[in-house]
Design a protein around this nucleic acid. Structure first.
Lengths: 173, 173
DNA sequence: GTCTATAGGCCGATAGAC
DNA sequence: GTCTATCGGCCTATAGAC
């Protein structure tokens, strides 16, 4: 991956995340990246190829984030780590996640990598803690996680820390 | 509102909700509605006018849905009605709500009509029920509501009824 | 008056040629 | 890295059918 290719991907990510895929023209991406427009097509074939490259990177990052939770043997810690997840996202990476949600609605993409294994691990965790309806509890938590990420990405959550504390306590932190 | 105008709006809603606003051309909308393309511009000025007309209808519908909850004096019933809300959406109206979420991400639109007054009413309800952190509880419930709607619209919620029951019980139903 | 059919201008975007 | 062909989308305009 050369330096120019990275610049292109970076510019594409910023524009896609801010304006949406359709609304971002390859010429603006090229200008923002400081390269000629043709270079985009040389390296990524077409506009869709750009998106594919970005999505591949996003999937890797997701797996990387969820892996430690899946590997956590202690049920309580597993749940708390799940709650902490959206709060721990780096602001530099926000564009990544914004793009995820944009695509979820614009192109009906499903980031199944994240949700399914996590859901199963959480169900198990709630079972271990003898919750009466572990599957539903797990679903609730996944839903909560999702809205939480949305609120953070859209800057719609005042009192971040108070809310995090509140959730930790709810799950016995 | 003539029959043709309704056909146009209906076609536009379907396409916008499925493919997104940008990706839906006026020519396809006209074809789907079975009218000539020019008619769209005669009635709605431009493509944006189409969207505006749809959003006006959506806002009215939202107010209509939330109003009875805001007017409910009993705290417990107020909370349960909130939970029931997404489960009570008519499948025929799903495109409406899908469009809402698409716009939320595509155009950063905020359906504040719904969330703010509802959030305040719920805070009050949790206060009345002597929850230790009513504001956070209200936020949690609004988040939950949001994810729930998303899951229903994207057909990602098996066991609808079991889950509804589960939530009702959690809030003392 | 409402609508269709058609023709076309303008513009920007993708993509490939050079 | 530049240049340009081609396509499609938005919108206007007009002539005429129901």
């Amino acid at each position: 991956m050369t330096e120019k290719q990275e610049k292109i991907l970076r510019a594409a990510l910023e524009l896609f995340a801010q304006e949406g895929y359709d609304a971002s023209s390859t010429s603006r991406i090229a200008r923002r990246a400081g390269v000629s427009e043709g270079l985009i097509f040389r390296h990524f074939t077409n506009k869709k190829g750009l998106l594919d490259a970005l999505m591949q990177g996003m999937n890797q990052r997701m797996v990387q984030l969820v892996e430690p939770i899946l590997g956590e043997p202690d049920a309580r810690r597993c749940i708390l780590a799940t709650i902490a997840l959206p709060f721990g996202l780096e602001p530099e990476e926000y564009d990544y996640w914004r793009l995820q949600y944009k695509l979820k609605w614009q192109k009906n993409a499903r980031p199944a990598v994240l949700n399914n294994p996590l859901y199963q691990r959480l169900t198990q965790a709630f079972e271990q803690l003898a919750y009466p309806q572990p599957a539903e509890e797990a679903r609730l938590l996944v839903h909560l996680l999702d809205s939480l990420a949305v609120a953070l990405l859209r800057d719609e959550l005042p009192d971040r820390e108070a809310y995090h504390q509140f959730l930790r306590r709810k799950y016995g932190g």
